[in-house]
């Protein structure tokens, strides 16, 4: 099964990391990238093919993760796309707020690249065995 992921992160290297993990581990999933929430919303509005899963950073310029999440969850259709937070912060308040608005998972970015690979692999493997619904505008 091939997914389309929307990765929203302002850090170029983070985006490179995510793409590299997919590439190096032979995943055939497609990654669409956005630098912030605003850009992501533009993508979601324009594209016919909606992402199956959204990976979202919290700290971003312009529209940050939480603001994007609120927008998404207020949309009658887009709200069904699972969102997984990729954050540096394990701050209790941030985690709680994200879950309150509605997320499917919360990953804290580790320092070590090996650990990062491990976490992303687990995550993708988990979602590939899940049943998902296609969201179409």
């Amino acid at each position: 099964m091939s997914f389309t992921f929307l990765l929203i992160d302002d850090d170029e290297i983070e985006r490179l990391k995510f793409a590299r993990v997919l590439d190096k581990n032979g995943y055939s999933h497609k990654v669409v990238e956005a630098k912030n929430g605003e850009e992501a919303l533009d993508i979601l509005v324009q594209k016919n093919q909606q992402p199956d899963i959204i990976f979202l950073d919290l700290n971003m310029p312009k529209m940050n993760g939480i603001e994007f999440l609120k927008h998404l969850k207020s949309d009658p259709i887009l709200q069904y796309i699972p969102v997984i937070i990729l954050s540096t912060s394990n701050n209790h308040r941030d985690v709680k707020q994200a879950y309150e608005i509605g997320i499917a998972g919360y990953i804290v970015k580790p320092l070590k690249y090996e650990e990062y690979i491990h976490k992303i692999k687990c995550l993708i493997d988990y979602w590939t065995v899940n049943e998902l619904i296609k969201v179409n505008l």
Binding site: D11, E14, L16, K17, T88, L111, K112
Partner: peptide
């Protein structure tokens, strides 16, 4: 922490 993570990845 972000730059540290990036250096580690690089």
């Amino acid at each position: 922490k972000s730059p540290l993570r990036n250096i580690n990845a690089l």
